[in-house]
Simulated scan of single mutants.
Amino acid sequence: MPDVYAPHRVHQDEFLHLRGLRHHILRWGQTVPGQPPLIMVHGWMDVGASFQFVVDALKQDREVVALDWRGFGLSEMSGSDSYWFPDYLGDLDALLDRLSPDAPVDLLGHSMGGNVVMSYAGVRPQRIRRLVNLEGFGMPDVSPAAAPERLTRWLDELKDPPTLRPYATLADVAERLRKNNPRLAADKAAWLAQHWARETPEGFLLNADPAHKLANPVLYRKAEVLACWQRIAAPTLWIEGSDDQLTRFWGTRYPRDDFEARLALVPGLERTVLQDAGHMLHHDQPEALAARLELFLD
C-alpha cells in the first residue's frame, strides 16, 4: 500500500436511528451559534467519507455533517430487496429534524445525492438556506411505454439478485478507485479504501447493498422532477467538472440541451465549472471546490 492520506480535520462517527434504520453520519467541527450546519450527501455507490478532502480544504472551521445513505457505508441496509428514491427524501427529512429542527441548513449533494437535494429543496423550501448540486444531472425522461419491459427486467433480476465481488486486499480496492478515476491520488485512494470496503471471510467487500444494482421498476418522470425544481426557494449553486460527464453517461439519450432547459427552470441559480475535473470533482479539485463553496455559502 502507498502512503495513506492524513486528514487535516478528523471526523467524529455518530449513529442515528432514522425511520427505523441505523444511519451513520460523519461530523466535523463544532456548532457555531447563528451559522447553519453544512449537510453533505453522497452519490450512488459512494460513502459520506468521500467528502473528507473538501472538508480539509475549507478555510473556515464550520460544522459539516456527511450522511451515509441507507444501504451504503456504515448505515444499515433497508432490509428489503429494492431501494426507492422517495426513501432518500424521507431519510434526509428525518436527519434535518434531528440536526437542525428549528433553522434552515446549507445542503450539498453529489450525483445521486445532488438529485435528492434538488427534489427535497423544492418540497421543503423553508428548510434550506443555501443549496449546492455537484453534477446531479438527473436522468433522461422515460416513456410510459417502457414500463412493461422495465418491470419484467426487475422481476427477472429479483430471481437472480446481483452480488458484489470481493477484493483480496485494501490495495486492490484502492486500485479499483483509481481505475474509476485516474485523477484520484494514490494516498487518497488508500484512505478512501478503508471507508469504501470492509473485511469479510471472503475478502474485502464494498460497503454497499448489492440490491442497489437492481433495475429500478419506477420510471424516471422528468415532469415530476421539474415540478419540484421550480419550487426551490434557496439560492442554488450548480457545479460540474470540465469533463463532459453527461455525454459520457448517456450519450444522445440525454442531450445537453435538455439538461440546460431543466436548469433554466431553477430560480436564483449560479453556475461554476471546475477545470481539470471529472464527475468526482470533490476528489479531483477539492481546494478549488472548497473555495467556491465558501464564496457561495458566505
Rank of each mutant, 00 (worst) to 15 (best):
P286H: 07
F53N: 13
P101M: 10
A121F: 08
L281E: 04
E224S: 08
L192Q: 01
V55L: 05
W44N: 06
K213F: 13
G114I: 07
G203T: 12
P255Q: 04
F51R: 00
W69P: 03
V10Y: 10
R165M: 15
Y5P: 00
M45G: 10
V55R: 01
D87S: 11
Q52I: 10
R129I: 06
L263W: 06
P210I: 02
E202D: 08
D156C: 10
W238S: 03
F249W: 06
V41D: 01
A146K: 11
D93R: 07
L96S: 01
M45S: 14
E240D: 14
D106K: 01
P140T: 04
H283S: 02
E294R: 00
D3T: 15
T31H: 08
A264H: 04
L295N: 12
R150H: 12
W196V: 11
G34W: 00
R27W: 13
W238M: 00
L134C: 04
F249T: 08
D93H: 13
G251V: 06
D87M: 14
G114Y: 05
G73T: 01
D209G: 06
K188T: 03
F15P: 11
V116L: 10
Y5D: 02
A49T: 11
A171N: 15
L158F: 09
L214F: 09
W229N: 03
D209L: 12
E199Q: 15
T163Q: 10
L293M: 02
R70F: 05
V273A: 08
A234I: 06
R98I: 11
V32F: 11
A264T: 02
N180P: 05
P144A: 15
D46F: 09
T200S: 11
L246K: 06
Y167Q: 12
T152N: 15
L184S: 06
L58Q: 11
L192P: 05
Y5Q: 10
H282G: 07
A94Q: 04
Q275S: 12
E224L: 14
V116A: 07
L95C: 05
L16P: 00
T200K: 05
D56K: 08
A174H: 00
L107Y: 03
D244H: 09
R150N: 11
E224M: 11
Q245W: 13
F72I: 02
I232V: 12
G241W: 01
Q230P: 03
R19Y: 03
V273Q: 11
L192N: 01
D156F: 13
A94M: 03
M280R: 11
L263V: 08
Q285T: 04
L89R: 06
